[in-house]
Nucleic acid binder design. Structure first.
Lengths: 158, 158
DNA sequence: TATTGTTATACTCTATAACTATA
DNA sequence: TATAGTTATAGAGTATAACAATA
């Protein structure tokens, strides 16, 4: 690499791999269940948090704006996979949870989903998979915890 | 996890990392240049192929349908960054290339883009970066070349 | 007949901002 | 005033299918 560009090349490769996996997964999710990846992700968050999450927490975890979480949730509610509950103590707040049917549906989708993922990743040596998992963990931590900012921070003022 | 789930966990982690990087990049790209990631990616493909690419090739590389490539290209043409040329020898075919202005604009964006990427990835140990780059290369090859299909193949017929 | 590319359509996701109701 | 959530709107991305021109 002539003038480094290491970080950029790493990012492009990361993006390429993600897209190579994500594109078929999205297609299969839609064809088999008529579901979109953002809605699947929302349900996955709720699966991991059985006590429910507020709209704000969902917004942060899914990294989309509040208005969009409302839209995603509306659709999931109308499908019957998700419910809104009044949160105790703060009447502004809403708690979103999976319904019993939503939990069943999610498990169904997750099982298929996992089979597809295994099929896609099956070509990679298991030892490499393990190592990759570990390295991505470090990357993730460094992204969530930008202790060292080499470039001008993007504190997102506004 | 009890029953392995290794591949799924690897995928979820990969996706999380990509999203943590992609979200701020998309915002910055829009705020600084009013550009979207798909259009940036299309320009990046053309930058790598100065002789131009056909709509079909773009469709494959960007992994979106032909109709969508037409739409992306239309917008880039109206902005003046990209041009359509008749392909010699096959009058159905169109060759898409960067204009001189488009090449300048892309270089400008790419420079900013790279600085953002370096800032985001700067928290990861350089040795880990190198190793991650290598492993992702293997993953990418295995995805492009599914020599061993452990699960029922998704040959994507039609 | 098959391929290349365009057009049309419908749906979804995204960002922004104004708004309500609480706090 | 600030926060939680909703609503409204506009702009894009996506998938599908029908279509024209060419091979």
């Amino acid at each position: 690499m002539t003038t480094d560009h290491g970080a950029l090349r790493l990012w492009l490769r990361l993006l390429a791999c993600t897209n190579l996996i994500e594109a078929p997964l999205r297609q299969q999710l839609r064809r088999s269940f008529g579901e979109s990846l953002p809605r699947f992700d929302l349900m996955a968050q709720l699966e991991r948090h059985p006590q429910g999450l507020s709209m704000r927490e969902l917004s942060e975890r899914l990294m989309v704006t509040g208005g969009n979480v409302t839209g995603l949730t509306d659709r999931l509610v109308s499908q019957g996979w998700v419910m809104r509950q009044a949160a105790p103590g703060d009447r502004r707040r809403v708690t979103v949870r999976l319904t019993a049917a939503g939990r069943r549906q999610f498990k169904l989708m997750a099982r298929e989903h996992e089979a597809w993922v295994q099929s896609l990743l099956g070509g990679l040596d298991p030892a490499d998979q393990t190592q990759l998992f570990e390295l991505l963990g470090r990357l993730k931590r460094s992204l969530r915890n930008p202790s060292i900012r080499t470039a001008p921070a993007d504190r997102a003022p506004r």
